[in-house]
């Protein structure tokens, strides 16, 4: 773990003023972290569900097979989306990515015949 601020990876750029001793986050930092968590957990789940729905609709398989494969894909998608949200440079960008993916998947699902 080479990072000198292992406890503050994605926010450390925003809080240069922080000294090594204190581990306190500013209000702004907290807000940003909360935004990322929400994007990762909530938005990630949204994307995963939409992926499951879209692939269930679009995969040219028998009904049960499509269900299984799409569920597996959805399950893998969630943790990966969380990682993507935390890897994004800013929280706004993380939200942007989540929304982009969600819109793409939703339109694919709707093209496949899904109605919410």
């Amino acid at each position: 773990m080479g990072a000198p601020f292992p406890s503050a990876g994605p926010v450390s750029a925003l809080s240069e003023h922080k000294t090594k001793k204190t581990n306190l986050l500013t209000k702004h930092d907290r807000l940003i972290i909360a935004g990322r968590i929400l994007a990762g957990v909530g938005g990630g789940y949204l994307c995963a569900s939409l992926l499951a729905i879209a692939s269930a609709r679009l995969l040219p398989l028998a009904r049960l097979d499509a269900t299984i494969i799409s569920t597996l894909m959805g399950l893998i998608c969630w943790p990966i989306m969380v990682m993507v949200c935390f890897a994004a440079r800013t929280a706004v960008r993380a939200w942007g990515m989540v929304l982009c993916v969600a819109i793409c998947l939703a339109s694919a699902a709707i093209l496949g015949g899904w109605r919410p």
């Binding site: 990072a3 292992p6 990876g9 994605p10 935390f86």
Partner: peptide, 12 residues
């Protein structure tokens, strides 16, 4: 310090 991919994953 720039947050690298690895650092942000370590944080997560």
């Amino acid at each position: 310090m720039k947050p690298t991919f690895r650092a942000s994953m370590a944080w997560l």
